[in-house]
Each structure stands twice: as structure tokens, then as C-alpha cells.
Design a protein around this nucleic acid. Structure first.
Lengths: 212, 212
DNA sequence: CGAAGATACGGAGGCTCCCTCCGCTTAACA
DNA sequence: TGTTAAGCGGAGGGAGCCTCCGTATCTTCG
């Protein structure tokens, strides 16, 4: 029942150490081998038993997210900085370009993002939230300034970004994606919406204030 | 060395039959379970041994491609028809929208496309070629009519399309993708290129005449 | 038709990976 | 230093991949 003190016992030193080792090993293995890499390989590299790995990170996603959490945060912070740029459209473009750079250096990063998009683990939700907010703040500013159409949500944009990067193990993908993003951002500008017809009828949703 | 007659022996009846059975089973299994589905399950459903499956389709891709080959052709033919539409930009848009519809009904189709994009098997190359030509012909026409920027290749466009669809097992993906494609097509229009600055300096490649 | 080959069949078996479970070890605390 | 909860690790059962080869079946030709 209720213990004498609600003090929690200090976590065991070996547990802490092992967790760290697994994370490090996982980072190495995932960066090299992508998201499908063997978890047993990770355990071996970390010098721990497979059971230990699973205790710390019950699912593959948990491990993944833990590994790439910091990366997600960096992207999020970049968005912070860009909020003060004067041209909102260019700021958004800049962010997207940096994100490409990011994905280019960390194999596995993209898979982590994809997981964030699909899974509903706590950590995944966290990542998703951060990124949505990051992109959303940039988007909002551009919309508010009347420079961008308002019917695209941050989620949409994020999806487009993920998607374009998805074929990232192909030769020349990076420049291709940069070109595509350019086109895309151009398409987002308000004036091009003016040029289009029919479709203007379904404004989907305001998007300026997003789901939460 | 040269045989008496270069007549090839008639293929065995059971072999033909089994091949067909496997294909049918694979179609069912892949459509339901996606690209990761168990090949042993396919064999079982087809009522053949696993060895037989592997003899006919040595790799997973081979099987995949065989299953979705017809689908790819349909997409390609659709592009044919659309070539006679009067507004080239709308024709392209229309094609993309149909392609979305397509992917929506066949789970696994997308994975097949992705494979076509990445693998270099003969069949993959074939698919890629068809699709590239399909999209390329539409693109070309719009560019020739002076309605679209010329620095996006069919491959780029295809990549963007794949990508946007990639998260297709999420709720609401379809409408999201349709919106994104709209934005994208808008971005492709020439006049929006006029509005952009810097980047105009690197025209990548003419794209009007593509790689082959 | 029947024999002889060529061709195809099928599934056992060896491998890798996944994940769970539980007896043993070890660190924290008194 | 002893007690005890927390943590460790790897055996083991399951699933899927793919190969290999003895056996069965089809085609061809006399």
C-alpha cells in the first residue's frame, strides 16, 4: 500500500547507463541502416541483452523517437528564429530547405518523422505537435500578411514535405526536392489562387487557426 | 551451341496455370495487406508451394510489378486521352487527380510505384518509363503552350505525386492530397515563376526534352 | 502409345528477426 | 552488511525469408 514516503528511489546507475548505451547504439545503427535495422543488432552493439533493450524501449517506435527527438526539436527551434525574418513566404521556404538539408544528413530521420505522423504513441504525438506548431507559425504569418492562401493546413504542408523527401535514397533527390518545394511555395502564394478558377469554391478550412 | 531447331519447347501447362494462380492470390493479398504481406501467405492462398512462387517470381518486386503492371498501363492510357483536352494545365491536374483516385482504391499500388521508382529490374524500368512518358507528354504540352515553367522534369513531378500520397493510410489523406496537388499545379504555372526572384538563376535543365 | 528427358513442383531446413518471460544479479537503502 | 526491489540477459517459440533437391508430371519423339 502507501509507502512510508512517496520519495521515489533513486534510479539504478546501471539502468541509466544502459539506456544511454542503447540510445547511442541505436543512433548509429539507424543512421546507417535505416528504420528497418535489426534491434538485436542494436542490443549487441550496445553490449546489452535484447531484453534490456525492450525494457527501456518497448516498441521500435519508442526507440526511434527517442533517438530523433533532439533533431525534431532543432527543426522546431529553427522555425522560431525564422519567425522574425521580414518576408514570411521566404521564411517558410527557408525552413523547408533547411529541413531538406536535415533529412539529407540523417538517414532514418525521415522514417522517424513518418512514424510521428502515423503512430499515436506519446512521443510521436509530441513530435508531431512540435513540427505542426513550427510550420504552422510560419504559415500563419504569411497568411496573415495576405501573401498566402489560407486553405492549406500545417499538416498538409508537412505531409507534402515528407512525401517529397520520401524517395530520398535515389540519386539527385535533394536538388529535385528543392525544385519541387520551390514550385510548391509558389503555388501557395495568394496571387496564383486568383488565377485559378473552379476550385476556389471549396476553401476547405481556414487553417489559420489549426486543429488545436 | 545452336540447336537443330530454335523452336522453344511448349511451356508446361501446369507452370502456366500456377503462375496465374499465384498472380491472382498475390493481387488479393497485396491489395488487402499492403506491400509487406507474407509471401508464404500468397503461396498458400494460391495453393502452391513456396518454392513454386519463388521460381516464377524470384523477388518480391518481380511479383509486385507483375501484379500492378496493368494498373500502371491504365494510368498511362489515361494520359493519352487527356492529351486531347484543350487546357493543358487542367489536363495535367485531371491526370493527377485520377491517379489519386487510383491509389486510393488499390492498397499496394503505391508501393508498386515506389518500387518502380527505386528498383532497376526490367519491369520496374518499364513501369517507370510508361509513367514518365505519360506525365511527360502532358507536361510538355503545357510548357509548349507557354503555360508552365520548364524547369520541372516528369520525374520530379512523379516524385512529388508519389510523395504526397505516401501517407495514404491516414485518415483524410485523400482530400489533403487533392488540395496539395492543386497548390502544386498552381505553382507550376508560368506566371508565378515571374513573381519569384533569385532561384530563377538555376534552371536545372530544360526538361522539355527529357532524359530519353 | 510408351519411353526418355526436360521441366516444374513442393516443402523441409537453415537463417534472421521479433518479442516475451522469468530465474539470476546487483545497486540502493537502512 | 543484509534486504529487497529493480534491472539484467538470453533462451525459446513464432513468423517470414529464401534455397535446395528429391520427386512428380508434362512434352516430345520414336
Amino acid at each position: 500500500m502507501d509507502d512510508h514516503s512517496d520519495q521515489t528511489r533513486k534510479p539504478r546507475a546501471d539502468a541509466v547507463r544502459n539506456r544511454e548505451r542503447v540510445l547511442e547504439a541505436a543512433k548509429a545503427v539507424f543512421n546507417a541502416g535505416g528504420p528497418e535495422a535489426s534491434l538485436e543488432a542494436v542490443a549487441k552493439r550496445a553490449g546489452v541483452g535484447i531484453g534490456t533493450l525492450y525494457r527501456h524501449f518497448p516498441t521500435r517506435e519508442d526507440l526511434f523517437e527517442a533517438v530523433y527527438r533532439r533533431e525534431v526539436e532543432q527543426l522546431s527551434e529553427l522555425a522560431e528564429h525564422l519567425r522574425s525574418a521580414k518576408d514570411p513566404v521566404e521564411a517558410l521556404r527557408r525552413w523547408l530547405q533547411s529541413a531538406v538539408e536535415f533529412v539529407a544528413t540523417k538517414k532514418g530521420m525521415l522514417a522517424a518523422l513518418a512514424l510521428a505522423y502515423q503512430s499515436s504513441s506519446e512521443l510521436a504525438v509530441f513530435s508531431m505537435d512540435r513540427l505542426t506548431k513550427a510550420i504552422g507559425s510560419l504559415l500563419e504569418r504569411a497568411v496573415a500578411a495576405g501573401q498566402m492562401r489560407a486553405d492549406i493546413s500545417p499538416e498538409d504542408l508537412l505531409r507534402a514535405f515528407f512525401g517529397m523527401c520520401y524517395m530520398h535514397d535515389q540519386r539527385g533527390w535533394q536538388s529535385s526536392v528543392l525544385r519541387l518545394l520551390d514550385v510548391f511555395v509558389d503555388g501557395l502564394r495568394v496571387q496564383s489562387a486568383a488565377k485559378t478558377k473552379a476550385r476556389a469554391a471549396k476553401p476547405a478550412k481556414p487553417a489559420v487557426k489549426r486543429k488545436r
